[in-house]
Design a protein around this nucleic acid. Structure first.
Lengths: 345, 345
DNA sequence: CTTTTAATTTGGAACGTTCCAAAAAACAAG
DNA sequence: CTTGTTTTTTGGAACGTTCCAAATTAAAAG
């Protein structure tokens, strides 16, 4: 109903002080006298004043807004990542523009440029497939800290926070080998992402280490989703010599593989060993509980937020590359007894 | 590297025109001469100018920012809801503050007040459990359109967009009855939410309609999550006379129920009929594919965004209450042949 | 070449803050 | 009562836009 929002000068007028004093009160300055502070604070409540952070941002030419762009919010791994960031960002007194690129680089470009116009202080980006260094260059050049999470972008000179995909995959394969498996597949994903490449490399190296020859047919490409997991199993059923177990690109694929096996009357975890990757929240409660490489997306989100906040506060700093460690959580789906392996650095 | 961001007056100076003219160009006004427009646009590219939307917002005292608060992003129903909103919001040229309240009203309050300080033009809220009318009153009073989605808040005089929980539950139960079930449970959820109440009411009425007496033991409360579904089954296994099927509060619970049945060696969809609610993306590909009441969260998100955008553009309008229709999607988990029932109003 | 009309351009105030240098007030010491 | 010190308060400029009324320029008409 108010024609015009009440401002700092309205309360200054009501309190019989200057707008500067009110401003001082607002920022909790120790310079102001206790009595005037009280008077002003009372008026703030009474007149229903709401602080205009936009005006402050303009004057100070810095904002308390962090941009977050996530490639796929409907994937629970990324949703949890976003939640982790959200926690950190909020508790640092910032707000976030959180957008979903849906794996579209065009969309991502639009969103980033819009965030830029709105004056973000930093950006956390979980890049869409196909993102190029040029997509983030202008931002970084203008001095806005950028942190890349989960996926890297070749050639980008910004900070990154990636999980140790190589070590995780290697640990998973070693475990399957220790259970006696020799015909081990790698399911899900396409060759165009760094994540896929690193995990596959871990798979290959672990097999080589155990002197198990690699059967290229056992690397089964498919969409990195639940449906992709089903598809991969269908493909596998045609093989003359079938694998006895599989490492999946991520948990979504692993669940799909379980589904696919069931519709072929194979009991996941009994007739076939499955290891996922990511340790999404449902991994624990699924039946069979999923053996998986735990990445702790929420924790990763928090670290990413901390990193960008640190860079914002420090002014410009050199890009930092962090690889977060990962651990294999052994549950039922690989057919092993339940126990937690210790953290592997 | 730039000490100071280049502004409208910098390019005005470079182009030898006034800042007003540049402003006109920026807003695509037809008043400006084609040649000057070109000159200005060229300079904008060359000098790497980026529009400062914050300054514009300040001057115009309206923004292009929409606040979205979601109670639980890690639940894929809400994640998809958010994605639907995101699409609509972006394509209308707005950006969004998207925050996750984690079902905490305190958190939600903080987040809303922070959004208010940052000058949102409208708010879409999927409220945390326990939200009260007073939590949104100040916003609504100051003329900012608010749209409540999925859950209602008693006493709040704002627009709402809810799905037809009652009709959906009723349709689901009728279907189970038509398949010959008589002992039907209702699993998941607690009595303190409106959604639970409405779905339960549909359950009761459908049973009453068929003259099936209601066994209060068959309403099994539990957390509205996958783990809650497992827990509900455990509870059920102790019953002397067990249900033969269940309507679950939502799909997450339904998946949990499948898990729980399997660990008791009951095959979901064969030994026990299950119907979910929401139709999340995995419902289709799960094994068995989940029979569920489809709510189309993404579509709902879009409609919510449209509604709030409409209200923003229309200035202040009266609150509007929309109930979105819902349809039963019959898949495998209830043991029926696959077919789609038509939309029920 | 003047007048009228239409097309373009332009200062400057305003939006709600912060920040600075400086003024005012309060207090203490001589 | 001065003077010096400390505490508190204060105008006014600035941030980067938009918007208005008015000025300037170009085109058309006479």
């Amino acid at each position: 109903m108010n024609k015009t929002r009440t401002s700092i000068v309205d309360i200054a007028h009501a309190a019989g002080v200057s707008k500067s004093t009110v401003s001082l009160v607002l920022q909790g300055s120790p310079l102001v006298n206790e009595k005037t502070r009280e008077k002003v604070n009372a008026l703030i409540g009474d007149l229903g004043y709401v602080y205009n952070r936009g005006a402050a941002n303009l004057r100070q030419s810095r904002s308390k807004i962090i941009g977050i762009v996530v490639n796929d919010l409907t994937n629970s791994f990324f949703a949890e990542l976003a939640v982790g960031m959200d926690m950190m960002v909020q508790s640092a007194g910032y707000v976030q523009f959180l957008a979903h690129s849906g794996e579209s680089v065009d969309r991502q470009r639009e969103v980033i440029s819009s965030m830029r116009e709105n004056g973000i202080a930093g950006l956390i980006l979980s890049p869409a497939r196909g993102t190029e260094a040029s997509d983030i260059k202008p931002l970084a050049d203008s001095g806005i800290p950028v942190v890349l999470v989960v996926r890297n972008v070749p050639g980008a000179k910004v900070s990154t926070l990636l999980s140790d995909n190589y070590a995780g995959a290697k640990a998973a394969i070693r475990h399957l080998i220790s259970l006696g498996h020799r015909r081990i597949a790698f399911m899900g994903g396409f060759a165009d992402t760094a994540v896929f490449g690193e995990r596959l490399r871990g798979y290959r190296d672990a097999l080589a280490e155990a002197n198990i020859p690699i059967n290229e047919k056992f690397v089964i490409h498919s969409a990195p989703s639940r449906a992709g997991g089903v598809a991969a199993v269908e493909r596998m059923m045609d093989f003359a010599e079938r694998p006895t177990s599989a490492l999946c690109l991520n948990d979504a694929v692993a669940f799909g593989v379980c589904d696919g096996l069931r519709s072929n009357n194979i009991e996941p975890g009994k007739g076939f060993g499955i290891v996922g990757f990511d340790d999404v929240i449902e991994a624990k409660t699924a039946v069979p509980a999923l053996t998986t490489v735990s990445v702790d997306p929420q924790g990763m989100g928090q670290r990413a937020a901390q990193l960008v906040l640190k860079q914002i506060n420090a002014g410009q700093t050199d890009p930092e590359s962090i690889v977060t460690s990962v651990r294999l959580v052994v549950r039922q789906s690989c057919g092993a007894p339940v126990k937690q392996l210790e953290e592997l650095a």
